[in-house]
Simulated assay, not measured.
Amino acid sequence: MTSWLLLAEAGAPEGGLFDLDATLPLMAVQIVVLTFILNALFFRPVGRVVEEREDYISTSRAEAKLKLAQVERLETELKEQLKEARLHTQKLILDAEQESDRLYRDALATATAEANASREQARREIDSQRESAMTQLQGDADQLGDLIVERLLAATK
């Protein structure tokens, strides 16, 4: 075993830190070729995909910002419309309450006037019936008085 080690040591030329022989340029050429191959096969397609994704992301972000601005604008418009609708509804409710109150007062006044008219008519009818009853009673009383006087005179004769 030691003989092999001696042979391995004997075959290696004595040099400095770096040996400049044909392997250095061969390794440089291999690195350059490998770089071109890797660049053509892996790095360009991956770079293209990364650029496409970045473009898609930036486009999506821009569209999202536009849509967000549009949504905010629509939200403000809808809030304004809702506010106007609420004010309009409150006005309609107030008008309806006032109209209802006016109709109630008119109906109450009409009912009161009709009740007063009915009461006045009933009072007049009662007065007329009382007058008629009084006249009839007066006539009956006069007849009864005449009858009594006639019978008294007839009895005294």
Rank of each mutant, 00 (worst) to 15 (best):
A40K: 09
A40V: 06
L41T: 11
F42S: 09
F42A: 11
F43Q: 10
R44W: 12
R44T: 09
V46C: 12
V46A: 15
G47H: 00
R48L: 04
V49L: 10
E51H: 05
E51Y: 03
E51Q: 15
R53D: 01
Y56C: 02
S58N: 08
S60C: 05
S60E: 00
R61M: 02
A62C: 00
A62N: 02
A62G: 01
A64N: 04
L66E: 14
K67N: 10
A69F: 01
V71F: 14
V71S: 14
L74R: 08
L74I: 07
E80Q: 13
E80C: 05
E80T: 14
L82Y: 06
L82C: 12
R86G: 12
H88R: 15
H88M: 03
Q90L: 12
K91C: 04
L92D: 10
I93W: 08
A96K: 14
E97T: 07
S100M: 07
S100D: 03
D101A: 15
D101F: 05
L103Y: 07
R105G: 00
R105W: 04
A109N: 11
T110W: 00
A111P: 02
A111N: 03
A113L: 01
E114L: 04
N116E: 07
A117D: 00
A117M: 01
A117C: 00
R119I: 04
R119C: 00
A122Q: 10
R123T: 01
R123E: 04
E125L: 07
E125T: 06
I126H: 08
Q129S: 11
A133L: 10
A133H: 10
M134V: 05
T135Y: 10
Q136T: 09
Q143V: 06
G145F: 07
D146S: 12
L147Y: 05
